[in-house]
Computed example of a mutant assay.
Amino acid sequence: MLGAGIFAGFAPAAGLAGWWLLPALAIAALAALCSAFSTADQSRAYPDIGGGYGYVRAQLGVWPARMTASAHLLGRCAMAAAVAWMFGAYVVPDQPLAGALVLLVGTTLLGAVGFRWSTGVSAAVSVVVLGVLALVVASSFSIAPVPSAGEAGTVNELVGAAALMFMAFAGFERITAPHRGERPHSPGVLKFAIPVLVGLTFAVHLAVGAGVLRQLGSARLALSPAPLRDALVAADASALVPLVQIAAAVAGVAALHFVLASAHRTLTGLVEDGDLPSRLKPAVLSLVLLAACALAVVLMPLATALGVAACATLFYYAFTNASARVLLQNDRTWPMRTACLGLGLSVLLAMSTPVPALLISLAGLGVGTGLIGATASLRGRRAASRRRRQPARTPGRS
């Protein structure tokens, strides 16, 4: 949750809505809160599945699940591209594309050798990033900003900015939908943890967003490839820029690791359910995922990648909230109205993303669903053909 959204997401949001990106954060937080409630309830109802694709398949059927998987994979590839571009913009500003691709390959190799983010490592990463963000906020408010020429964005794009800022909250599934073999949290813990997690994320993003907006103004912020770095320079705190680069590097590796792990889980579910060929082993899936993410980096600049990630992920949570609506009352911790609100907000925000991101997402959703369906149909026909070719057994013979 402390990834591309907080390091780079303010720029495209400011380009849409200017200062209205701060109220937009509240709308995004509400959508994230409802979606987190839905995934937590479904994880409790289906503890052995894990992930929206499996929940939708169990509740709504095969084709909605395939659409859910397509939206999730597209969103994760775009989010990986956004995180990689963020890393390149902060850490290797002279060669951001090279830095982005190096991060992708390096993080994939870390996963391949079995590196796991323990609770201690995750806590250390959070402390480092939050400490640097606190310095950015303090510096931004300690020095009067230079008057900015003109403003960007309008209130008419408030919902579109909320859609982009939704990516600031993506990541709550780490506690609401644990992977197989991980110990799930009890409903009592989640009742406390989900609102606190979303609330703290909202507070951090609100403070950082207000700081960079104050120091840069919406027009300069909208054009900045690295808002936190540029805010420090504007606040005469250039000495702190190396700390921001370290925080961006640490956050980039951590966020990308979880993004790739989430996409890998969906691919594994598709293989296990017969929607993808069974010969696709984990190592092959990792290579396919790496290639898809690298292609996303090459084809989509940072702002487009953030838009596609937001739009596709919101479509994914629209399906997840829709399936949560049909859960039995005994499987619910939160009222059905939260899933209904989450469904409505997800669709509204997704349809309000910038037009290029919306068109790419809709095209990707259609192509991905079609490919998954065609692959599953072909595998089914081949299996039926093999059964027909098997010789009939003669009665009485073993």
Rank of each mutant, 00 (worst) to 15 (best):
A4C: 02
I6R: 12
I6Q: 05
G9V: 09
F10Q: 00
A13F: 15
G18H: 11
W20R: 08
P23M: 09
I27A: 08
A45E: 06
Y46M: 09
Y55C: 05
Q59C: 01
G61Q: 00
W63S: 01
A65L: 03
T68H: 02
A69F: 02
S70N: 04
A71H: 13
A71L: 05
L74G: 09
C77G: 07
A78S: 13
A78T: 11
F87Q: 00
G99H: 12
G99W: 15
L103E: 02
L104W: 08
G106R: 09
G106L: 15
L109T: 14
A112S: 10
F115M: 02
W117R: 04
A123L: 04
S126N: 06
V129C: 04
L130I: 06
A134V: 14
V136Q: 13
A144N: 07
P147S: 03
A149T: 10
E151I: 15
G153F: 11
N156F: 12
G160E: 04
A163D: 01
L164N: 03
H179P: 05
E182N: 07
R183I: 00
P184S: 00
H185F: 14
V189K: 06
A193Y: 03
G199T: 06
H205P: 04
A207D: 13
A207W: 05
V208A: 10
V208L: 03
R214S: 05
G217Q: 10
S218E: 02
R220N: 09
R220D: 13
P225T: 14
P225A: 07
A226E: 10
P227L: 11
R229V: 10
R229G: 11
A231Y: 15
S238Y: 04
A239F: 00
P242M: 00
L243D: 03
A248M: 02
V253W: 13
A255H: 10
A255W: 05
L256M: 08
F258I: 06
A261I: 07
T268Y: 04
G269S: 09
D273K: 00
D275I: 12
P277Y: 13
A283P: 04
L285P: 13
L285Y: 01
L285R: 15
L289H: 11
A291I: 08
A291L: 12
A292N: 10
A296G: 06
A303K: 09
V308F: 05
A310C: 04
A312N: 14
L314K: 12
F315H: 05
S323A: 14
L328A: 12
P335F: 10
C340H: 13
C340Q: 15
G342Y: 08
G342C: 06
V347E: 11
L348E: 00
S352A: 06
V355E: 10
L358K: 09
A363L: 15
A363P: 14
G366C: 08
L371Q: 01
L378V: 10
R381F: 05
R381Y: 07
A383Y: 05
S385P: 00
R386K: 11
